[in-house]
Design a binder for these strands. Sequence first.
DNA 1: GTAGTGTTTTGAACACGTTCAAAAGCCGGG
DNA 2: CCCGGCTTTTGAACGTGTTCAAAACACTAC
Lengths: 218, 218
Amino acid sequence: MTTAPGSTRDAIVSAALELFRERGFDGTTMRAVADRAGVSVGNAYYYFSSKDELVQGFYDQLVAEHRALALPELTGHADLADRLRIALNAWITAAEPYREFAGRFFAVAAQPGNPLSPFSPDSGPARAAAVDLYREVLSGARVDPDPELARELPELLWLQHLGIVLFWVHDTSADAARTRLLVDRTVPIVARLVRLSRLPVLRPLGRQVVDLVRLLKG
Amino acid sequence: MTTAPGSTRDAIVSAALELFRERGFDGTTMRAVADRAGVSVGNAYYYFSSKDELVQGFYDQLVAEHRALALPELTGHADLADRLRIALNAWITAAEPYREFAGRFFAVAAQPGNPLSPFSPDSGPARAAAVDLYREVLSGARVDPDPELARELPELLWLQHLGIVLFWVHDTSADAARTRLLVDRTVPIVARLVRLSRLPVLRPLGRQVVDLVRLLKG
DNA sequence: GTAGTGTTTTGAACACGTTCAAAAGCCGGG
DNA sequence: CCCGGCTTTTGAACGTGTTCAAAACACTAC
């Protein structure tokens, strides 16, 4: 009666994602997940060492969806502000169905040492994918920032993304309207900063920022 | 056998703070808190509707300690960078004993809708006190920023403070050395930005930032 | 086939946060 | 003194995430 390899694990993940969407994170019990997956509670813990760990699957999926949504929309836009706005709004759209659940998720992820933290080694691949999206946002844009700064810019834009996400998680307005407003206000600022980064007065500032990002990276 | 008014409540808070420091947040059970306070579990829940709520006391205390530590050290310094560095390092010093526990605390606080969130109404007083400290950091400094910006600057500096705290919570280096390094790198950038805010090229940028902060505030 | 070995699965048991109905204490008015 | 209504206190009970020893299974070697 053995099914495909890894099928137990998969069954558990899908059951969990279904239930998370249906009843939120807190409303979903491990017993319910195990039930729907057709296994015992203990078995679920054989594959995932905690309830928190079950959501890494969600995170990976979300990053992939964001990318899939954003990339096609980017073609034909060369203005950095436009491209940024597109990427950030794509996130909001992709993440919308999970808002309640995502709140809990990001709270968990904010916990230091938690493998779900965006800064943790375990999130390495997902983080790389996210940063990479912003690399593409930049490479398709008609911009010419200070070259030193340019190298760290994808990481910086991803940090901006994290900030927006943090706001979104707390945003209870309909269809995340306030977050979209925040995006509209933030994007021109960032775009202008990037453009101004070549100005002689601002060069030392750019250097300091570059140093800072390198420190943050370890 | 009644003791002073409010004494039950106080006993529970102190018991909780003691235990949090001794064994961390997760290591402290409500049963243990009740035991040490000399009351029943149910009674603890009569005063505090959840375990999370018990730490608001900690938060208030920390903000007060930070203020008490920072203010005296500020006298005699007129350079904005110096003053900022002093304020931020004072935080690190004040918070150091609670690092492990604080990690959990801020994770809880990051949860949307949680009364402990720094953006929630319940944290209003503590937030106001924190913002106020940065108002004093500014008012004692020899600076002359764009006047529009000046009005929102305390809030902005507090946001910087939150960013540093977020990093600190994840920082496992001895004596928070990496966070102190981050402070050393961040402070000159912020100070320079404030100084440059009068430059004509940067005026529109300043306006955008001011708009942004006003949006964030409501 | 059977014995042995590692992997997977089970479900009862545990510890915890939280709830709740009932008890105990308190206090003003008759 | 005691009645009635309040605040406070109790501890057993519930539902949850998690653990664990034991069972079931899969496979290899003989």
